[in-house]
Write a protein that binds this DNA or RNA. Structure first.
Lengths: 400, 400
DNA sequence: CGAATTAGTCTACGTTGTGGACTAAATATG
DNA sequence: CATATTTAGTCCACAACGTAGACTAATTCG
């Protein structure tokens, strides 16, 4: 529901607007901020003063562009005050990133483990150790970590921070957010969704695209107009269970012929003939492809075709501007990108002028953790005033 | 991009908030408005005074609820001042509706014609005559028609009001908005999208659902959180070309095995064995079904199964709360609803707790025209201040 | 070195919402 | 039936915030 706007909300919005403009444009003088925001110089000056006070932006040296007139003083976001923690708990690794408000990655901790072999609480304990260590290091350098985001492989209840169902981990209804207990607010979200946001903020993503996350399962994150599309219950983007052939092979989900049975990591390794994916991994596959192994190339064709079929359904339903392939599809891209695009093109070319271009993610397995941190930073940009209150840390409880 | 908020924008938002609250709740006193909006009584009184001045709301008699204390004066939206025109140009009929701000339908004009046999400009001329007649009648009763919405069967460029491609009419790049030239602002939009909005505002739709429009083509309109989801280019919802069987029958769109080839009106009539759909229509089909005709029942099963398969892909991707079947699926619902739900249930039950419920549209072929009018009325509610300016009709041109 | 130009600040002011006192109109109570 | 109580709505002084334009500061051009 829409909310009433009072003076404080007006101010909060304008403050957010100025900070967002500074962040997206890198650095700006007050005068040019006034121009791009439509606010007056006076108002911009006041807002910038508040942001400087809060430590969210800093003045750089005076700008000298050889222009006439008094040179303006540029401000840019400060990366030294506020940061966020990005966590990923996936089937075969744990990842922690600390990212500052200027979107610089300050710390990377990664741990490779097979979490299918462990109890949920043990895995969460591992991640907690990693996260607390990162937190301590970040705070040691004077950064204030304002929150954490956690990516998990499966649908979650964002409100409660509970994993609804992560079939590839074998987890059901695990309250992972509460169990982590990091001492900072935490937001749990589906891995594919956060990887999409990671791609948006740290990678190749533009404002509108569909990110495809090829892990053990296949997920998708849809970004529309710079925002994540989550669906009514937050379960949107289950690309892995889109129909490829309605009477095809049995899927773990109970249905038949789902995309995951053609292009999921396990199905793909099966098709290749490699029975020990965890021993060899995707690098071994790439190696075979580079040597022109026929069975592996055929597996790519089959997976790429299925992905193209499922994506053409997705494009018809959801009309993304671009497709970005991530996860295992990134290293495989040279061998499947073409088939995917061809299959899509054949199915879509006539209805639309052309099928959306297929691009490859550059972030690798870092995407989701970065997106998780980015999402927290975004809340800071959305309401810098709320943060300043938190920074000054008045001990009075928030007046409802 | 976010916009700067100044005092005028603050006021516009609060005005909109109050009007929206009055509209959704039917009628309210100023005191209860203050409570639900969070604004003070003073502010609400001022805003309501403005809305009364503009004629957008009216006071009803004093409320008497047997409560203690001074009785409040309820206000409700006035249906006698502002109205909108809803138009639909479809393959086999033209429809015009006049709907007032209180969502009462004031006028219905419908004309059955086969528009595939005519030139675009002739069809547009027919619709124009109908619309102008409705406009004149509405203005004759003192209503101010603030705009028109037009539903067309195919993707459109909303900016220019051009039909991009309406395969079932055989039209391409027809600037239908400009050609209608009604003298009021007009917004052109895909029929399925507007039917979904019609269902939202005038029918069974809640805040989140996927509306399925079964006409000659099959479209879908996705409503998320009370707003239409249009995709990056506005071409979202092409359910008719979602894959059912990747190597199935050839579709007009160039692909194979699209839903339309299984459950589109033409495919359905073919399956029934009725070679003259326009002579007999859907009523004849229903008649046969009521008499238990085996071939027709089998056709329903096949169409329902295909629809269920395509919808399970859609649900996996987009996670709607509910499915609403409209168009020809509404009269066929008793015979296909069950198959659709079963097919979906079998494919989805394990991944989600349960598949979304399948409901039936109550609006029939009126949905799109009502949605078209409703969309225009929504712009009035979103910014009542802009309308008041238009109502007072100052002759100075809008300042850039 | 002065004119022109642009950045940023300062001050008076306009718009809008707030809070609480005040008035109005009903029911409950004795 | 008179008075207390309760709720609705208005009034008024005030606070928060953005605006407009004068003013000061710092630079380049000629």
């Amino acid at each position: 529901m829409a909310q009433a706007v009072r003076h404080d909300a007006m101010r909060a919005r304008n403050l957010s607007l100025v900070l967002r403009e500074v962040r997206t444009r890198g650095s700006l003088t007050r005068a040019s901020l006034a121009e791009v925001t439509g606010l007056t110089k006076t108002t911009v000056s006041k807002l910038v003063a508040d942001l400087l006070d809060a430590g969210l932006v800093v003045e750089t040296g005076a700008v000298r562009a050889g222009e006439r007139g008094r040179p303006g003083v540029e401000v840019r976001v400060s990366g030294d005050r506020v940061a966020a923690l990005g966590l990923e708990l996936n089937v075969d690794y744990l990842a922690v990133r600390v990212v500052d408000l200027a979107r610089r990655v300050r710390l990377r901790l990664t741990q490779t483990v097979d979490n299918r072999l462990s109890e949920p609480l043990d895995v969460i304990g591992d991640l907690r150790r990693l996260a607390l260590s990162a937190l301590a290091q970040a705070e040691g350098t004077g950064l204030r970590v304002v929150g954490a985001g956690l990516a998990v492989p499966g649908p979650v209840d964002v409100e409660s921070g509970e994993i609804h169902n992560a079939p590839n981990l074998g987890w059901r209804n695990v309250p992972v957010g509460a169990a982590l207990d990091l001492g900072v607010p935490i937001r749990v979200e589906n891995e594919a969704n956060l990887a999409a946001l990671g791609e948006l903020w740290f990678g190749v993503g533009r404002a509108d695209f569909l990110y495809v996350s090829g892990e053990i399962g296949i997920g998708a994150g849809l970004v529309v107009n710079g925002a994540l599309f989550r669906g009514a219950r937050g379960f949107a983007g289950e690309l892995g269970h889109v129909v490829v052939t309605p009477e095809g092979p049995q899927c773990r989900c109970g249905a038949r012929g789902c995309l995951e049975q053609y292009a999921g990591q396990d199905a793909f390794f099966d098709a290749v003939g490699d029975r020990s994916p965890y021993a060899h991994g995707i690098d071994a596959i790439v190696d075979r492809l580079e040597h022109g192994d026929a069975a592996t190339l055929a597996a790519c064709d089959k997976a790429g075709w299925a992905l193209g079929v499922a994506l053409s359904s997705a494009i018809n339903l959801v009309d993304p501007h671009t497709i970005v392939l991530g996860g295992i599809y990134a290293p495989l891209f040279p061998w499947i990108g073409g088939v995917v695009a061809e299959t899509m093109g054949a199915r879509l070319a006539q209805l639309r002028a052309q099928a959306p271009p297929v691009e490859v993610s550059q972030l690798g397995s870092e995407a989701a953790a970065l997106g998780a941190a980015g999402q927290v930073l975004e809340t800071v940009v959305a309401d810098p005033a709320a943060l300043s209150e938190r920074l000054t840390d008045r001990r009075d409880p928030a007046p409802r």
